[in-house]
Design a protein around this nucleic acid. Sequence first.
DNA 1: CCTCAAGTATTTTTT
DNA 2: ATACTTGAGG
Length: 709
Amino acid sequence: MKSEELLKDLNPDQIKGVIETEGPVLVLAGAGSGKTRLLTYKLAYLVKVLGIPAYSIFATTFTNKAAGEMKARAERLVGGALKGMWIGTFHSLCGRILRIEAEALGLTPEFTIYDEDDSLRLVKQIMRELKLDNFKVSPRGVASYISSLKEKLITPEEFSAIAMKGFESEIVPVYKEYQAALQRSNAVDFDDMIMYVVYLFRQNEEIHHRWASRFQYILVDEFQDTNRAQYELVKLLSAVHRNVTVVGDDDQSIYGWRGAEIRNILNFPNDFQGTKIVKLEQNYRSTRRILEVANAIVKNNSMRHEKRLWCNSEDGSLPTLNIYQNEYEEGSGIVKIISRLINDNGVSPNNIAILYRTNAQSRIFEEELRRANIPYQVVGGISFYQRSEIKDMLAYLKLIVNPKDNLSFARIVNLPPRGVGKSSIQKLEKESASRGIPIFTLCREGQLDFLPHLAQSGIKNFVSLIEELKGKKDDVYVLLKELVEKTGYIKMLEEEAEPESEERIENIYELLSSAYAFSESHPEDRSVEGYLAEVSLLTSVDQWDPDSGRVSLMTVHSAKGLEFEYVFVAGLEHGLFPLAKAEFDNELLEEERRLFYVATTRCKRGLWYSYALTRRMHGNENFCKASQFLEEIPKELLNVEGGSCDFALQYERDADFPISVNSRVLHPFFGFGRVLEIRGRGKNAIVTVLFEKFGIKKLALAFTELEIV
DNA sequence: CCTCAAGTATTTTTT
DNA sequence: ATACTTGAGG
Ligand SMILES: Nc1ncnc2c1ncn2[C@@H]1O[C@H](COP(=O)(O)OP(=O)(O)OP(=O)(O)O)[C@@H](O)[C@H]1O
């Protein structure tokens, strides 16, 4: 095929990035400059113009949804199916490699993937066993510490050699035992999926060579958010052909807290000899006003690659900043604007998004949108597949395909109740560990006379149920349906008759329809294994429907890579966005600023910022001041409504009243006390304080000198 | 072994 | 404010 026809939708810089197929290529470019489009066209170019077979291409994107879209677009360009192309998230692609190479790693292809919640349970269990219950680092902290080690490819052995600080040496045995427990359960966690592939390639030259030869072209989107393990994987996979194209924007690196390293993108040319660098400088997404604001924001970061970003689009209107009295007014104010957009301007709810820093902020918007009868969808938070009733059902499936999965066993053996309580499970765990046999095998084959009779018969029934269902694992839907019936799980929910029971029952039916949909869409492989592999690695955005005709609500993190005509960025308050934790840490602060840049650049034409003067957090009312990021935007670039545009003044005033309910205060005459209530705001506020010596007093803040202690 | 109630920690973002 | 853990009693 003639390449001109394919390349006519690209600008000259993008074309350069596409046709530069041999050797390493780094595309470093700002938001909305067409990086993803470049990659999509490059896929099509490789196949259609160069005749490269699709199966020798390995491409990663940040979400499965992005992968699906990129593949579908590339197929449209090619005019045929891209069969056998490896495209997906790092995790799903590594999962596929692991299923094939499982044995070399001491796993079987049926291995289970543990999510964050599973691995936290495991860490808790291990810490209990190691008598570290009262360890100064919480199980959660230990779990995330272990995760950060894995992201850096540090094994338990290596860690034990470098663990210096007191608490680190205590984590060593937990990490060791955690890995051993995973191995015994024939399970991996998210971090293992990448780490194991890297280890395998490093240790086994034959296997490494086989995979690295297979993939002639490697393409990576959102490269600024790769961690060290992923970077190493890219190096290893491209070792034979050396054709690797990575695209990204250091200004959009927002996953540092998850191990992402910006230096991966900044140092790429050093590690990949002969890298050709492509820069894209034209933004096609946003109007000029929005782009000006975005550029003004990111200019304040010091650790960055300076990039030019210009646009040819219309000026558009100034982004608006709305200042609301409290978070409820912010909710109703934003929803009012949204309903005007929909009803008066004929905008489809599809094209509108509300973005926020934390998931907890979504609730108020949901309530207001429901009240206004505007359809919406929330992305992220606790996802469907993380709900406990769904995880219970999935644990059954996991145990059916992987009988070694001890964690899943412990989760469901007594759900519904079968007389197998906590202490029985603990005894089983002990016995299984000391004999080196999976718990399920022990139950099937071993003598269980160390358990109460009730537990023994309960386990017997449980084992035969699992054994019976095993025969049906070629079709998830059939199996799951029978599982729901035979376990009596729904009956259990009905009987417990709690307020949420009904919703949980509905969720079970919803799971059944998801399994049905999977069976329908994968007629060649309807297996439980395939279903689990898919649902275990869904990202939050994968569960989002871009064409649902609904307003989208999500965190800024989830919105990465997406675009909307109209965007609301809410809760721009000091301590919330940026989070309080980032206040005194410049690196964290710069990441928060990049997050704000990402939020801003999602918008094509209508942008509204907002913040609330007071907000209730963990139960008490807080006075808020504007996010410092708002102050960094030149005044003439914003249209400010509902308050003074003089932030400096506001900053000052609010700094005088950082008082919240429960604050301990010192009064020049009354002495120490605790704030019970705050009425009104700013200078007009009346605070009620319970003083230690003088009891309850009402004070007008304007006339009192209260000091926070 | 199970249930209920009081007490405690907790949420920043997610594969 | 809420979710989860822990302890007493059935
Ligand atoms: N050459 C082009 N001509 C016209 N429109 C383009 C061109 N390249 C990209 N676009 C459009 O610009 C928008 C942004 O493109 P794309 O998503 O590829 O950018 P990106 O650099 O990946 O953005 P981000 O960094 O924000 O994820 C899309 O709507 C895309 O269709």
